[in-house]
Amino acid sequence: MKISLNELHVKCRNVFRGLGFPPGSDEEAAYIIGWLEIHRLDGLKQFPDICACLKKNAFPSSVGFSGIGAIDCSQYCAIAVVPGAFDYLRSKDTDSQTCELVIDRCSDATLFLPLIMKYMDSKHSWVVDGADGQSKTQIFADVGNEQLYVASSKQETAGSSSQIRIKRINPLSSNSRNSSEGQSFASLHEREHHAIENGLEVEDTQWQFVLGMARKYLVPASAESRKKGAGGGDSND
């Protein structure tokens, strides 16, 4: 079915709200899922896994470093940590240096992609490597060539733990990729523009799951609420 981008964002935000995400984090998480969905990177598809993860790990009251420049995500649901981790990298003054953060026990590198594209400035490129025992994902947002590269591959390295390594790079690392392998930033914008102009086609069962979960932030109906909550009364005159 077709939905508007406003619906996509609001319903996703309400899902996160219902899952216990605090204000601000619900918006960021919804932005991440929405961006991935617009760009056909399995946004809405992630909700069942996110819900399952949040049943085990509630939204964190604090995120600590497990080592220098490293966060251990074993106690957290990744999407709850990504915005804060990304802020941390953005806060570093890296005019002449590379800035790096490692997130252990987390492998979904694409979660960083929406925020990278949202906060991209003209001076920094970004590299994100994510891997677990079965697969490997590499993302390279090359600001010099205005190209985004996303590559995934299978790898069998049994026993190796999952990890994301995210780096902000300066100076630019141009010509490090064949531009034909990537997507131009312009084409990403074009896809977003197309979704605004025409609405976004989403998979019906995934959307129904979202709608069901989004209701969890609503207060159940009651006669008292109906009477008092919005002012009550009526006026047919």
């Binding site: 605090p22 995120v63 804060g84």
Partner: peptide, 18 residues
């Protein structure tokens, strides 16, 4: 400290801080 460092310690305050 930066706001980013604070928000890692207090992620529940993200909305009001923003």
């Amino acid at each position: 400290q930066s706001v980013a460092e604070f928000l890692l310690k207090k992620p529940r305050l993200r909305g009001v801080l923003a």
